[in-house]
Design a protein around this nucleic acid. Structure first.
Length: 815
RNA sequence: GCCGCGGUGGCGGAACUGGUAGACGCGUAGGUCUCAAAAACCUAUGGGGGCAACUCCAUGAGAGUUCGAGUCUCUCCCGCGGCACCA
């Protein structure tokens, strides 16, 4: 009987399904644990080899938690709205609903093949009207609170996908999905006011057990800066120009001002003789994409308006320019330019020959500047403020100006409101009616869900309207308020909408009256482990936190943050160390791997490859190491069963046996400790090597005790659920599942050794090692160290200058 | 440019609060079994020197702190990820 995964894995999967092992119960005396995976987009290709990595990690944690007496919730569902299904629908003229259905079936089958312990009775699907009813409901709640609103703004438009995109979906000026260069397009858009939550989103990061990397990315994305808003009077004009600056200490060095081309004052203040030039510049800037504007970093462009502003602190008149290096979307869309202390301003000043005045000096002396000095320092050329340090000056100058209402302390964020409209078919319809008389009229709760109507053509129109606009009998509707002519909103929600709250629906998936029952929410939230990829750092993970906080404010949930602990898995790269892709031809297919070695081997190999969060290359040969290991476990358990339990009689071997037993016992306790701690810390690679050492240790023994076999199977069970179940029930003849057993415990006294190897160093170099009882003191250590031949010969005639003794570790003799 | 992470055998990777560098696995070599091969198992395996005990070198490069540095500090090189005219 050799280990044959094909024979056993299906069998146990069926068994587990029939028994309903992994169903979670709401409310229980046991402590709860909510183990969550980022749910997949059910693509046509099926699961790729990277999927089982994160899913195995959470599965191990889930099974381990159950064995430790927790009431575990470990659900799975489908994030099924979005472009791939829609694009596929366009190509094949099939309804995306059918495409999703088919793909979900395939995914579910694959999930079962890996032996994941999901509670399928809680499955959710974001495209199910019973689900998206509540996505729409949340949108309406936000509308009530003015958090969703319409605005005409220049947005990122993908000409390939023919839809607008959120800031977060644009990378290097390209669409995240199809990598087409995005263009600016001015459109009326639904927006979500995520910026109103900026401060809380930033602050509450502190309380989260998340990878520092993700927290930093969110912090940077939110981009809080503290500074002052300073107002400049336009000379000979009624208008004022407000600017945001983090460096009010440099105010005396402001030698000109710059407005963004889109700034509303541009037209008003430009002098007649400059209007033509200004107009042309504004027009040209409008045509450029963000990327094009950024690409010209080195070469600053701009035009002079002819107008001047008054520096509020010095009374000096300074020229007002226009340049596209100033962004309309940040701060006030205008800046005071301090060329001496800002690189961009310096470049601009050089290009257009504008004055550069040093006002911050590192040493209080005056210099000739060859480049911008951007650090803080001592103020010079700054009137009454000269001699102050930057930090002081920032405060004093702001204070002094604020008396005349020319300045106030301000906090700015880089975060922008979320562009929430998509001009595509396959998404949640936005539940708003547009009435000619009443304006926007929200649907009432009783009219939800607003179902997505069937269309003949899924093709985006490209005009900025969604395909829904073509369905006249759906679009044209009577206004519920005035009964007049009205139309439905035809834009749909972005792909991210449904995933903003799905973890709440698992808690209460069939609830018709509420998004989630309050008591159940209170019982299960927060999520104790959220396992997923790092690519969602500023997308899903930020959006979901925003929605959760909104639901908290609305009294729907009792928690301020959804995900208490987050862990990322890295990418699995191709055997060539490159990202897997069709064009590179380095794709590894998980179905084939399972067919060849079994799910247990695949699961364990992915955990063994390296640290969970690292990217690591797939090694086609390396996987046999795990297969061999499981094979050894298999034969170890089988052999011991056949083995005759009669012990040997002569006393010498008995003695040896008892010594061996002691050793293996220590190893057992050590291994339990190591595996336990490693699972808690998501260090599965070292947990597996510890189990390998344990099984190697057992193999070297003449006899393997029942206790050791059982312990090994219990420790291994979360990692390799099938083989352990087979050996547990079929070979060891246990009546119940290994997955319902208790996690083994260890005795810390037995983990500790009673002897240790003292490292003997001379001048910091290792020269010998001596076995000593644990706790040996310096005197004893010195004595045995000096008696070592290799030590003796090296220090003959020399007196030790110093002896460094580290208890239970080493002794270092310095001569 | 800024922020973050990393660089350890032929390969993936271990190494607790500074204390035996290379756990575990792959690969390779030799062996057992076999007519043979595969599988499995056993042994060896960082590099140099030595019959050997042993010894010298070695964690991207260079310096520093220390009795002692893969681990701490500084400078530099390389790779990866994020942001990018954010005032």
């Amino acid at each position: 009987m050799r280990y044959n995964p094909r024979k056993i894995e299906k069998k146990w999967q069926n068994h587990w399904r029939r028994k309903g092992f992994y169903k979670s119960v709401d409310f229980s005396k046991k402590p709860k644990r909510y183990v969550l995976d980022m749910f997949p987009y059910p693509s046509g290709e099926g699961l790729h080899i990277g999927h089982p990595e994160g899913y195995t990690a959470s599965d191990i944690f889930s099974r381990y938690s159950r064995m430790n007496g927790y009431n575990v919730l470990h659900p799975m569902g489908w994030d099924a709205f979005g472009l791939p299904a829609e694009n596929y629908a366009i190509q094949t003229k099939t309804h995306p609903r059918l495409v999703v259905e088919k793909n979900v079936k395939r995914f579910r089958k694959q999930f079962e093949m890996f032996g994941f312990d999901y509670d399928w009775s809680r499955e959710v699907n974001t495209t199910d009207p019973e689900y998206y009813k509540w996505t729409q409901w949340i949108f309406l709640k936000m509308y009530e609170k003015n958090l969703s609103y319409e605005a005409i703004i220049p947005i990122n438009w993908c000409p390939q996908c023919k839809t607008g995109l959120a800031n977060e979906e644009v990378n290097e000026g390209k669409c995240d999905r199809c990598h087409t260069q995005v263009v600016k397009k001015e459109m009326k858009q639904w927006m979500l006011a995520i910026t109103k939550y900026a401060e809380r989103l930033l602050k509450d990061l502190e309380q989260l057990d998340w990878p520092e990397k993700i927290k930093i990315m969110q912090r940077n994305w939110i981009g809080r800066s503290v500074g002052s808003t300073v107002t400049f009077q336009v000379s000979g004009h009624r208008s004022q120009i407000a600017v945001f600056t983090t460096r009010p200490d440099t105010l005396f060095g402001a030698t000109y001002m710059v407005l963004a081309p889109e700034h509303e004052l541009v037209k008003k203040i430009a002098f007649k003789e400059h209007k033509k030039e200004v107009g042309a510049y504004v027009k040209a800037a409008k045509r450029k994409s963000d990327l094009e504007r950024a690409e010209l970093t080195k070469e600053k462009s701009g035009v002079f308006t002819g107008a001047h502003a008054v520096n509020p602190v010095s009374g000096q008149k300074i020229p007002i320019w226009i340049s596209d290096y100033v962004l309309i979307s940040y701060g006030t869309g205008a800046i005071m330019a301090v060329p001496a202390h800002d690189e961009r301003d310096f470049e601009f000043a050089k290009t257009f020959n504008l004055p550069i005045i040093e006002v911050i000096s590192p040493d209080g002396k005056k210099h000739k500047l060859k480049e911008a000095y951007t650090n803080e320092g001592i103020l010079v050329n700054s009137g009454e403020f000269s001699g102050l340090y930057s930090e002081d000056a920032k405060m004093r100058i702001t204070e002094s100006l604020s008396k005349k209402k020319f300045a106030k302390k301000t906090i700015q964020y880089k975060l922008r409101d979320w562009v929430f409209s998509r001009q595509r078919y396959w998404g949640e319809p936005i539940p708003i009616i547009k009435c000619e008389q009443c304006g926007n009229v929200p649907l009432e709760e009783k009219d939800l869900p607003l179902k997505l109507p069937d269309v003949k053509n899924y093709e985006p129109t490209g005009t900025g309207e969604s395909p829904l606009a073509a369905i006249k009998d759906w679009v044209n509707i009577e206004c519920p308020k005035c009964k007049g002519k009205a139309k439905r909103e035809t834009n749909t929600m972005p792909q991210w909408a449904g995933s903003c709250w799905y973890y709440l629906r698992y808690i209460d998936p069939k609830n018709k009256k509420a998004l989630v029952d309050k008591k159940k929410e209170k019982y299960w939230m927060r999520v104790d482990l959220y396992q997923g990829g790092a690519e969602h750092a500023v997308l899903h993970l930020l959006y979901a936190r925003f929605w959760h906080k909104f639901l908290y404010d609305s009294g729907v949930v009792s928690t301020k943050e959804p995900f208490a602990k987050l862990r990322n898995q890295g990418l699995i790269l191709g055997p060539d160390g490159q990202k897997m892709s069709k064009s590179r031809g380095n794709i590894v297919n998980p179905d084939e791997v399972v067919a060849a070695c079994g799910a247990d081997t695949l699961r364990m190999y992915e955990m063994f490859m390296g640290p969970l969060e690292d990217d690591k290359p797939w090694d086609t040969k390396g996987i046999v190491g795990i297969y061999r290991f499981l094979g050894r476990v298999w034969s170890l358990v089988h052999k011991s069963e056949i083995r005759n339990p009669k012990s040997e009689t002569n006393s010498k071997s008995k003695n040896q046996n008892s010594k061996q037993n002691e050793e293996i016992e220590r190893l057992r306790h050590k291994t339990i400790k190591k595996v336990t701690e490693d699972i808690e810390g998501s260090r599965f690679n070292t947990a597996i090597s510890a189990m390998m050492e344990y099984s190697n240790g057992m193999q070297e023994q003449k006899h393997t005790s029942q206790k050791d076999l059982e312990t090994l199977l219990l420790l291994l069970a979360p990692f390799a659920p099938h083989i352990t179940e087979e050996l547990w029930q079929e070979t060891l003849k246990k009546k119940t599942s290994v997955h319902l057993e208790s996690w083994p415990s260890y005795d810390s006294k037995l983990v500790a050794e009673d002897t240790f190897e003292l490292i003997v160093q001379i001048n910091g170099k290792m020269r010998a090692a001596v076995k000593l009882p644990v706790g040996a003191d310096e005197e004893e250590a010195t004595r045995s160290a000096l008696s070592q031949p290799n030590v003796k010969s090296r220090i003959t005639g020399q007196k030790p200058k110093r002896i460094v003794f580290v208890k239970n570790r080493l002794i270092n003799i310095v001569v």
